[in-house]
Every structure is written in structure tokens, then in C-alpha cells.
Design a protein around this nucleic acid. Structure first.
Length: 311
DNA sequence: AACGTGCACAACCGCCTGTCA
DNA sequence: CTGACAGGCGGTTGTGCACGT
């Protein structure tokens, strides 16, 4: 099992791609397009299976890729989209031009997931992690230090979901029910609010409120959330693949999970603090080594010559 | 300086879905 | 309708680098 017909036919190379292979693939696709992927390796003179070529192209060689550090806005958007879409990375990637599902998935698994856990948010359900002792005395977010570990943050169940443009959800035409906007509506709002080209890469927590994010009417940034607040949801959303996929069949989406993540965004420092972001220099070093290209700027200009060959 | 550990990222694996004969 | 095939997707693994001891 496993394998694909294209992989059986002959001895195919695996592992990292060499600069030579990259060049062959780029040249071929530049000239002919990929067409049928299974025929690409043969036509391009590569000892790879078609799927491998496709993956390499989509995740790495495509000229329209926006490489480099994820901006804070992108990370915010990923988190919010994940709350709505679950682990459907390709769907999430659609809304982040120049980013690949693989890239987003890696970022999620290596960075965002961890940060959410540190903040007491379950990255799967976007709910507060279960309290071990069950004491319920959630530490209020009342100090800068605690801002990075807002575990146990709870939102009153009657908190009104409010758009940052000042329009509450239940005022909108999208949903009559104030607590259950549809998935499509949430997506629309998320995307609409992220369309504005604001440059928000600040570590200042207050700046998060300048982000056009969904947020809640109560002022959670000042640690006024009390432990008396009822849990957000008594039935956690489990975003397994299967569950998430069912959303397509069942457009009604409980937004109960949203408050957690949104409030987290509002009070916490950026997920990858400061400029020393993980992927920042690693990628360039890797690229320079693997592709033996001279250092270039972060905009992926080394691909532009290739890009110019397309249309 | 050497070693161990953790992290980020690229790539593979296996399954699912859509298309077509 | 059914089976074969290709493409697509998400999960997982492998590799190399950075950093700490």
C-alpha cells in the first residue's frame, strides 16, 4: 500500500532536492507548465515521482511564494482561521497569499501550538485547558508578566461578540442568533477585517486592539475577568479532521471557541516575540546553502527572475 | 571544544476525493 | 456502476542548525 503508481515504476530519488533538480524543475515548469504532474519528472529529466515534484514546486519553488517570517497579522489570522476551520491547512492557506499549507502547518505545530498551550489554551479546541486541581481560582491577568501566561482565562457566557468596527454580530444580517454565527460569516468577518493592510508587528499588547480583530465588549485586557465567569462552553469543540470536515456539511458553527483565542490575542505578546523569529534567518541560511545563491533580501527576489518567465 | 538537546523546516507517507473510461 | 488513476491533503518523520551545558 501506500505508494503511488508513479513511484513504483523506477528507482526514484528521495530526500532533499539538489539545486540541480530544482533548476530542472523550474525550467521545465517555466516552459511548459506542470500539466500532468505524473509526467513532469520524465519530461524534466528528474528521478522523482510526480507527487514529489508537485510538492517541491508548491511548497518551495513557486515564484509567488512569500518567504520569510510570518507577520503578527498573519499569525493572528492563522489562529482565528484555525478556530473556525480546524486543521484544514489548505483552506487556511487560501487566505494567506504566498503561504503554503505546509508552511502554515509547520508554524502551527512548532510555534503557535506551543504558545497557546503556554497561555492555557488548548490548541485543538481553542478552549482553556482543563484545570488540574479544579480549584477554579483562575489567575487574573493583572500583571505584565502574567500576560504571557493567561491560563484559565474565561469569558462570560453572555459576552457579546463584537466586531471591531463597532458592529455586534447579532446586529449583522448574517445571523439572527447572537451566539451562533455561521462558519461562513465568521470567515467572512475574519477575512474582511484582515484585508486592511495594517502593519501590526508590535509587541505592545494594546496595539492588538488596533488590529481589526473580533473582540469582546468587556475589557479583558485589564484583568477584570472574574473566576465567577461561567465556562465558555460545556461541550468542547473537538476539531479533529473528521469533525472539521463535517463543518462543510453543517454550516452552523458554534462560536463558543472563539472568545478564548481572541482574548488571548488581545492580551498576549506576539507569538513569536520580537524580531528574532524562528524562521527569519534559518530559511535564508538554508537557501543559501542549498541553492548556493548569494544572500538576497527577504522578499524572495531570487525567484523573481523565474517569476518573470511566467506569463 | 565537544556533546546533547530542542527547534524549524523540508519532504515523505498514507489516505481521501474527484475524474474518466 | 465500478475500478484505475492522478491530484490533493494532513500527519509524521528526518535532517540540519542553533544554543546551552
Amino acid at each position: 500500500m501506500g505508494g503511488h503508481s508513479c513511484c513504483y515504476k523506477q528507482k526514484l530519488r528521495k530526500g532533499l532536492w539538489s539545486p540541480d533538480e530544482d533548476e530542472k524543475l523550474i525550467k521545465h515548469i517555466s516552459k511548459h507548465g506542470h500539466g500532468c504532474w505524473s509526467s513532469v519528472p520524465k519530461q524534466a529529466g528528474l528521478q522523482r515521482c510526480g507527487k514529489s515534484c508537485r510538492l517541491r514546486w508548491i511548497n518551495y519553488l513557486r515564484p509567488d511564494l512569500k518567504r520569510g517570517t510570518f507577520s503578527q497579522q498573519e499569525e493572528d489570522l492563522i489562529i482565528q482561521l484555525h478556530a473556525v476551520l480546524g486543521n484544514r491547512w489548505s483552506k487556511i492557506a487560501v487566505h494567506l497569499p504566498g503561504r503554503t499549507d505546509n508552511e502554515i502547518k509547520n508554524l502551527w505545530n512548532s510555534c503557535i501550538k506551543k504558545k497557546l498551550r503556554q497561555r492555557g489554551i488548548d490548541p485543538i479546541t481553542h478552549e482553556p485547558l482543563a484545570e488540574v486541581d479544579g480549584s477554579g481560582d483562575k489567575a487574573p491577568i493583572n500583571s505584565e508578566k502574567n500576560n504571557s501566561g493567561s491560563s484559565g482565562l474565561q469569558i462570560p457566557a453572555n459576552a457579546k461578540l463584537t466586531m471591531h468596527v463597532g458592529k455586534s454580530v447579532d446586529e449583522s444580517t448574517a445571523s439572527k442568533s447572537s451566539s451562533t454565527p455561521t462558519k461562513e460569516f465568521l470567515l467572512d468577518q475574519l477575512l474582511a477585517t484582515h484585508e486592511s493592510p495594517s502593519t501590526c508587528r508590535s509587541s505592545n499588547p494594546t496595539s492588538y486592539f488596533s488590529l481589526p480583530l473580533l473582540s469582546f465588549a468587556p475589557d479583558y485586557t485589564r484583568g477584570q475577568i472574574t473566576s465567577a465567569a461561567p465556562p465558555i462552553s460545556s461541550k468542547p469543540l473537538l476539531w479533529s479532521n473528521q469533525t472539521a470536515r463535517q463543518l462543510d456539511a453543517n454550516p452552523e458553527l458554534s462560536c463558543n471557541a472563539m472568545p478564548n483565542i481572541l482574548s488571548t490575542l488581545a492580551v498576549d505578546p506576539p507569538i513569536c516575540e520580537g524580531g528574532d523569529s524562528v524562521s527569519n534567518c534559518t530559511w535564508h541560511k538554508t537557501r543559501q546553502l542549498q541553492r548556493q545563491l548569494p544572500p538576497s533580501d527577504t522578499s524572495g527576489n531570487d525567484f523573481q527572475s523565474v517569476s518573470a518567465g511566467f506569463e
